[in-house]
Design a binder for these strands. Structure first.
Lengths: 343, 343
DNA sequence: AGGAAAAACTAAAACGATTTAGCAAAATTT
DNA sequence: AAATTTTGCTAAATCGTTTTAGTTTTTCCT
């Protein structure tokens, strides 16, 4: 466990200054007219002593860590773990490391995490936020920490954001269900009430239904707290079931809700789509081989990650983001499978 | 975007030394006999100026980052994302941040990542390795970087490890399938050939079958490269199908394999468990509501994370890990659902 | 009163890199 | 041969903390 080799050790053992070693290591040697011979000597010695730079010292000096943070509500949620994975790959290919934080839809936890990541001098953040207003992010903008919001945004935000067209997604879902002849439709989302994705999906959905004169009664727009999903859904379904007033279709607004809903319908031995059709939001590979397979609105996960990372990187590198790119909205797709098709 | 407040600013504005401020901030003031009055003054000023410590500087000075790394083959794999999530929670509650890296079953990528994380002076690593021998880890032990291996281990390893009893898991699966009357059974795992979990599951499985005189022909022990799963499985199944030589049951050795297998059997319209039974390894919530629901060997994910994090933390804090704890093996459970039960 | 002990605080070094400003020797120009 | 430029290199400052080894002042003891 020999002591760590520093740049000073290299310099001393060659009888040169550490300035020189540093310049060589940073490929600035030519610019400073260091002779090729000397450069080679340095590089050889670096290999010989197996020198590994202390990134902490470098980061400290340069005020840069080559690390970005990714904040999502739950990394074990399939949607976010795929986002995280894509970002990780992009980050590594640009020399960045990724710190992932799960916020559990808790806005205080999220603030705390942002504070800590800022103290650690991360170079930037990609955030699917749990905040309930734009304000914390406007502060973040003022503080100068590069960041990009994904998935969820707010009106009046000055941060760059990448999201999908949730309103259109809601409409696609509605039109498909209408086309299949469903009229009595329930919607399941999550609380709290300010989550933009959930709200946009619902309003989009309602707008398309309204065009055909279909109105969803308020008690069929269900919102469950994160962490209570399973119980809430179980309760609601039982309630509908016992009242003999099952909806003909249910639109579940994220992949966990879809799963929870499927599970509880199965427990009640309710046939899908015979008795109730299910339309989900967010595709997950296994939705294609459940029986019935599940129709969903699918988000372009890779694309979201690419655009967000690009936007972040450009901020880190100091360029200004043009007004047009401040709020990127990507299209969604509908994937029609068995759960919405009456046989 | 006012300049960052440093400990020096606090000191100057109060007319005291920065030593004093530092001592107060680190709760070492009492030990050094700083008067309560002064302490209060410092703390008040810290609040007033909204001082935020520069963790990078601190980490640099102390040689400690309060950050650990988690290396897994793919964070978007449900098993690993749940492990990562558990570790993340434990880490935060102990003041640590987590960096997650996906190695893609690529041993060079993994080495590269370990090197980089070491340069960044991470305090420790939790690794589900893609290496093919114990050797790199014995080096890691010598280098003094605290780490714990999870999931996969090797013989002759000097690193602490936490894994499940994969051999017993294989046996449980075999006995259940035998008990259900299946004899012609195929196994699907992943390459490369040195992955301990896969091998232990297979040998356990074979050992229990052998006790009943059942031998699996070599061509029914299938291994697919990571990243080729879907194609390999599709090919093999088609081959069996066309040859009219379908196995009665298939034992899939991780959750992705299980998913891929289900998907392709569906595509071929092969009834589960009517024509082929499926027994998986690793439980994932949705296996309980697919139709048929899927029988699996389930690993205690939270427990693995807890034990691994505890082992890591104790190393970071400088205690020695006793011989007995060097290689923790946790029990698995069998979860019997519809995919293995003939109706 | 003189010396020892205790209380309250501080100066300066250290961590390992990057960067600024500049020096000495050699080569070139005049 | 003196002046200038170029080439090749270096000393020292800097980043923001923690920590070591004191120092100064006050209190206490005899």
């Amino acid at each position: 466990m020999g002591k760590k080799i520093s740049i000073d050790d290299i310099a001393k053992s060659l009888g040169v200054s550490k300035t020189l070693v540093s310049l060589v290591l940073n490929n600035k040697a030519d610019k400073h007219g260091i002779s090729p011979d000397t450069q080679k000597k340095v590089r050889d010695k670096v290999k010989e002593l197996n020198y590994q730079p202390n990134m902490l010292a470098r980061g400290f000096r340069m005020g840069k860590t080559n690390t970005i943070g990714v904040l999502v509500s739950d990394i074990s949620n399939r949607f976010y773990s795929r986002i995280a994975r894509s970002i990780e790959d992009l980050a590594w290919s640009h020399g960045y490391t990724v710190i992932i934080c799960s916020t559990d839809e808790d806005l205080n936890k999220e603030s705390e995490q942002i504070r800590l990541l800022r103290d650690r001098k991360l170079d930037g953040l990609i955030i699917s936020t749990s905040q309930d207003s734009a304000e914390p992010f406007n502060k973040l903008v003022d503080s100068g920490l590069p960041h990009v919001l994904i998935d969820r945004t707010f009106e009046g935000m000055r941060s760059p954001s990448v999201s999908v067209d949730n309103f259109a997604g809601g409409r696609l879902a509605a039109r498909h269900l209408l086309h299949q002849g469903y009229r009595k439709i329930a919607v399941i989302g999550i609380t709290p009430d300010h989550i933009s994705t959930i709200n946009d999906r619902i309003t989009g959905f309602q707008s398309a239904l309204a065009e055909e004169g279909v109105i969803i009664p308020p008690e069929w727009i269900i919102k469950t707290p994160f962490g209570e999903m399973d119980n809430t859904i179980k309760g609601k379904l039982q309630q509908f079931y016992q009242a003999g007033a099952m909806p003909e279709a249910i639109f579940t607004l994220n992949n966990n809700l879809t799963s929870a809903c499927m599970l509880n319908l199965r427990k009640l031995s309710i046939d899908i789509p015979g008795q109730v059709a299910i339309m989900g939001f967010d595709d997950v590979s296994f939705f294609s081989f459940t029986r019935p397979s599940i129709s969903v609105i699918a988000q372009p996960i890779e694309r979201i990650s690419e655009v967000a990372f690009d936007l972040l990187l450009r901020q880190i590198e100091g360029s200004k983001i043009s007004e047009k790119e401040m709020s990127v909205k990507l299209p969604v797709d509908i994937v029609i499978r068995e759960s919405t098709i009456k046989s």
